[in-house]
Simulated assay, not measured.
Amino acid sequence: MRKSIASYLILTLSICILLFVSVSSKETVIDLGKYSTKGIELCYTVSQDENIKDNVLASNEVNKAFSPYLGKSFVGFKEAIGFKESRGNYFIVNTFGYLGKYQFGKGTLRALGINNTDTFLKTPELQERAFIAYAQRNKWILRRDIKNFVGKRINGILITESGILAAAHLSGAGSVKKYLRSYGLDNFSDGYGTTIEHYMRKFAGYDTSFLKADRKAKAM
């Protein structure tokens, strides 16, 4: 009998404690009706431009933060290459004289219709156009190799169109042809030791269908 009474008292006490905790843990409701921003100078960090297009490229505007997850999109492709080449710096010249975000040589720029390197270095939009034009040229030059090798493996690396175009940006289309047609035996490396094979692996699987093969593509 005593055990039953003790059990009953413990149960009752436990219920009281649970009810107390439940009531006390409820958030206090705040009446916001009395609050107003009238007369306060507000500072917005989001642009109020309603005419922004969805397809604007990531690098069209310099010195503005842009950090969405770009995945394997074309914008992701070019931004990844830009970061690898220069950490995304439009205004840099490396120790070998390569210029800008995508590290173009003067000879390549002349082929793209750009003769004034000072203007090129100061104009991010021109650098973006140059990247696309050069990729279009390389896609035309390598069109047969893209058709013949995409989907195959060389030295364990899955060959993709984006990997081929990235490697062509690094070394030129001719060196990429030699690499593919030698099945990896002729593996060009640049002045810093970066190889075609490294770019093939690092930039594989991006969507470069946006690029149209164009033998005469120009940036100007």
Rank of each mutant, 00 (worst) to 15 (best):
G33T: 13
G71I: 04
A130C: 09
D54Q: 13
T37N: 12
A166Q: 01
S7A: 15
D118Y: 06
E27L: 11
V29S: 13
Q48E: 11
N115Q: 08
F74P: 05
Y183Q: 13
V23T: 12
N187L: 10
E50K: 14
G184Y: 01
F20T: 14
A135W: 01
Y206V: 03
D207K: 05
L112G: 03
Y134W: 08
D186P: 00
R87D: 03
K147C: 12
I159F: 05
T160P: 07
K122E: 07
S14D: 06
A168S: 09
F210T: 14
N51W: 02
I52F: 11
L109H: 00
F77C: 05
R129I: 06
I81M: 02
A166G: 03
E128T: 12
S14A: 15
G205Q: 09
G163K: 00
F91K: 13
F131A: 11
T37L: 15
S22M: 09
V29A: 09
Y90M: 09
K101Q: 09
C16F: 14
G39M: 10
S73L: 11
T119M: 11
R215W: 02
S4I: 15
I10S: 14
M1K: 15
K106F: 02
R153T: 09
G105I: 11
V150G: 08
N63L: 09
I10M: 14
R129N: 10
Y98M: 12
F20R: 07
F210D: 02
N51K: 05
H198D: 11
S47V: 06
K122D: 14
H169K: 03
K106W: 02
A166H: 01
R2G: 05
N138C: 06
A111D: 10
Y199C: 10
R2I: 12
T95V: 12
G82N: 01
K38R: 15
I15Y: 00
A130P: 04
